[in-house]
């Protein structure tokens, strides 16, 4: 799929090991091998990008506003993805250490926006419509804009959740908030891990093991902690908080690798789980979701 195209979940069913074998065999053949190697690398990248986009944005079809928004976000997600270092993107390991956290944080925010669009379409559609008004000024702060604190993480206390005096307006609709945990993530997570446990061939890998090590009560607290830590860490370079010469010490290659890996974990895991929520739109079928997730397992 070309950059900018729509996600194609079917493409991600290709087994990476098969492509890897082809890669090795052909690369022994000199110049021709180098071309094939390049082509295979590009194909692998596209498959992985497509897989991540299909997990997070689903398979948006039709011409409605929500589908159009998600198609746009899938395209933007792919563009950002390529700005990450290998093996996830196309950048070299020694790429600009300040550019990687920027791309990683943008990918995390964009992924969360796409999942908010699927979990709570109203929230994103009103922002879209606000942006379509002639009065929309990018230089001006918009109170309705999607915010990390408030839309992704809930701001303020929510306990006790089911207090009879609590009005719906005080029930946080944050993507990783307590109410979304109870209504969306918890049941979806149970369906997801049951499907992973029964998958044939078995899905194995560090991320799957990490995922299966959490029960449904621990899932959102864990992923929320990971998301918050990754967001804060990536933000240090964006807001440029480094007032001493500590950039190199903080954003060394091992640390950037962990930061990007953590953000890919958050996005791919949430993207996989959300497709097991019965009320979320544009869900790929279970097989396609697991095939896409297998690439990040």
């Amino acid at each position: 799929m070309a950059r900018g195209g729509r996600p194609d979940p079917g493409a991600s069913r290709e087994r990476p090991c098969d492509i890897g074998r082809c890669h090795t065999a052909q690369s022994a053949g000199g110049v021709k091998g180098a071309h094939v190697e390049r082509a295979v690398r590009v194909l692998l990248l596209r498959l992985e990008v497509t897989a991540l986009a299909s997990l997070i944005c689903g398979s948006p079809t039709g011409t409605g506003a929500l589908a159009d928004t998600l198609q746009h976000l899938a395209t933007a997600l792919e563009d950002l993805r390529l700005r990450l270092p290998r093996p996830y993107g196309e950048q070299d390991e020694d790429a600009d250490p300040l550019a990687i956290p920027f791309a990683a944080r943008a990918l995390l925010e964009l992924s969360c926006t796409a999942m908010i669009a699927r979990a709570d379409p109203f929230r994103v559609l009103v922002v879209r419509m606000a942006q379509q008004q002639g009065s929309y000024d990018p230089a001006q702060r918009h109170a309705a804009a999607i915010q990390w604190q408030g839309d992704v993480l809930s701001s303020g206390k929510t306990a006790p959740l089911w207090d009879p005096t609590r009005a719906p307006s005080s029930m946080s609709r944050a993507l990783l908030g307590d109410y979304m945990q109870e209504t969306l993530w918890r049941p979806a997570y149970v369906r997801c891990i049951d499907a992973i446990s029964m998958a044939s061939p078995r899905i194995s890998g560090e991320r799957v093991r990490e995922l299966l090590a959490k029960d449904e009560r621990a899932f959102i607290p864990w992923i929320r902690g990971q998301a918050q830590a990754a967001y804060s860490e990536a933000s240090k370079g964006i807001h440029h908080e480094f007032l001493t010469s500590s950039t190199a010490r903080h954003y060394d290659s091992a640390t950037l690798e962990q930061l990007v890996g953590k953000i890919i974990t958050v996005c791919s895991v949430l993207g996989c789980v959300i497709n097991f929520c019965e009320h979320v739109p544009f869900r790929p079928d279970e097989g396609a979701t697991l095939a896409a997730f297998r690439r990040f397992a």
Binding site: V190, S197, R209
Partner: peptide, 14 residues
Amino acid sequence: ARREASRAMKSGGR
């Protein structure tokens, strides 16, 4: 060694 935190059981429960 714990391999999974939550698996469905035949008799119900996890």
